[in-house]
Every structure is written in structure tokens, then in C-alpha cells.
Amino acid sequence: MLTPAVVAAIEDLELAARLVVEGMRTGNHKSPLHGFTAEFSEHRPYRAGDDLKYLDWKVLARTDRLYTRQFRETTNMAVMIVLDTSASMGFGPGGQEPTKLRYAALVAAALSWLIVEQGDAVGVMMTAGDNWRYLPARSGRQHLRALLSELARVEPAGAWQPERVIARGAELLSRRGVVIAISDFYDAEVETRRELRRAMRQGHDVTMLQVVSRPEMTFPYDGDLDLEDLESGDHRIVSAESVARAYRASMGDFLERCRSGARTDGLDYALLPTDIAPAMALRQVLVRRSGHSAGTRETSA
């Protein structure tokens, strides 16, 4: 499985996303992406992990080749990915590991790849400073390339504005769909939760993907530090040893608050440390979603 460092080293986001998806599909685990529908769409070569019940036995008998039947879903699912591009997402542990924004963009790209591949529509909503940057939810390869291109150009800047990006992203979904918010959720905690609840009330399926780096959780520094807030530019000189314990406790409380708040509000929630392989993180998200929405969604595989 590709490590975060390797994936981060691949500049082509489309290629990186495809590698993540392929890495997620290969292996001994059953693919969580299979849906079912009555309308046959096309054949594709059998891949390891495909359910044998979708294997076209007649074709196998005639041609001695393995093909899996694909079905067109009867109702297209629309997904809006809300990506936090604030300055705080530009933080990374250094070395070969990617920044949080790079990691989040990669996860978003891989998700988009999967969504489009299964025939659903996907869009992205983010801000670039004070400007909007979004693509409406659509399907198709051409749209996917435009979306991936947009994700590849994101740079960390400004602040997280949940009342704008989440609310607007939910509004852009013309019908009930899925809203996936990818952020560290550090800022505007109350507003973020409020907007996510509002999106849920609008009938959307809402997922929180919280991206953090390991040093943010463990604070492994020592000596005297001049901490500079990436968003506000404020400085605070602290002794790492004296603040580490309180910091870790406060950070742990915050993460637990996010997780429990999501559960209380009925949201899907996943914590994505940037030192975990993106494919593994994506698999966990999808397995969680598969279990969460089993029987309620009609998806095609």
C-alpha cells in the first residue's frame, strides 16, 4: 500500500488518486463499493475482490474470459465535497509527509474518482481567501478531470468559513445528496457544527473527515518555541516542556468533542491522521459509510 510520503511525492493528483483507489481495491478485503440495481450497464474485466454473483457466467462459458456485469443506478447520487483550504491546513510534520491540505486534497480526489467511476455526481466547494471556488456536482470523466485539476491547484490561505462553504455547498446540491466536509475543524467550531446540522436537516447525508497531523496530537517539541498562528499570525513564546501536557490534554478533548458531537448529530465522522496511508484511510471511511447506509442507499457497482 502506498505510504503518505510516496503518494505526496506524486505531483499528478489524478494519478495519485487512481493509485490510492487501486491500492484500496487490491488486497484480501472485499470491495465495499458494490451496489446493485436492476438496469444492466456494461461489462468490465473481472477484478480481484469483485463479488462473484456479478460474474457473467454465460460470457465465461462462451469466451472463457471473466467479465463482471455493471449496472446503472436508477437514481444518481450527488456528493459535495467541502474542502477546508484555510492556512492552518498548510501545516505538515515536515520531512516526507504531506501537509494536511495535500492529504485532504488527495482523499477528496480519490473519493471523487470512486464516485464518478460508479456513475454518481460529485462537486467540490472551497474558498480561496475571500473568493469562492467550487464545481457543481456532476458525473463523467471530463468533469472529474476538471475537479481534480481544481483540487491540484489549492493553496492554503485565509480562514475557515463554515457558514459560507458548508451552507453554500449544501445549497448547491439540488436534491438530497451527500456532503463530505474535510477539515481540521479547528476554527469556528460552533458555526461548523451548526452548519453541518443544518445540512443534515436539509436531508443530506453528512460526513466529517477530520485531518490532523501527528505532531498536532503529540506535540513532540522541546525547548523554547515562538509559536506563530498560521491563520491569525499571532505569536506566543512558550516553553515546549511546560505546555506539552496541557496541550495534549486540550487537543484530546477537542478531538473527542468533535467525534462525540458528530455522533450526537448523526453525522459520519472519521479522524484521518496524515501519517496513515491515504488508501487505508479511504477504505475505513467507505467501510464505515457502507455500514452506515446499508439498505438505505441504492448504489450500483
Binding site: 492552518s88 491546513m89 501545516f91 494536511k100 481540521d184 479547528y186 476554527d187 498536532e216 517539541y221 518555541l225 515562538d226 509559536l227 506563530e228 498562528d229 498560521l230 491563520e231 491569525s232 499571532d234 506566543r236 512558550v238 505546555v243 496541557a246 496541550y247 486540550s250 487537543m251 477537542f254
Partner: peptide, 9 residues
């Protein structure tokens, strides 16, 4: 040390 947020310190 540029840091994502100072809210926890």
C-alpha cells in the same frame, strides 16, 4: 514554529 492554531496553548 508556525503552528495551525494557538487555541490549545
Amino acid at each position: 514554529l508556525p503552528f495551525p492554531t494557538l487555541r490549545f496553548v
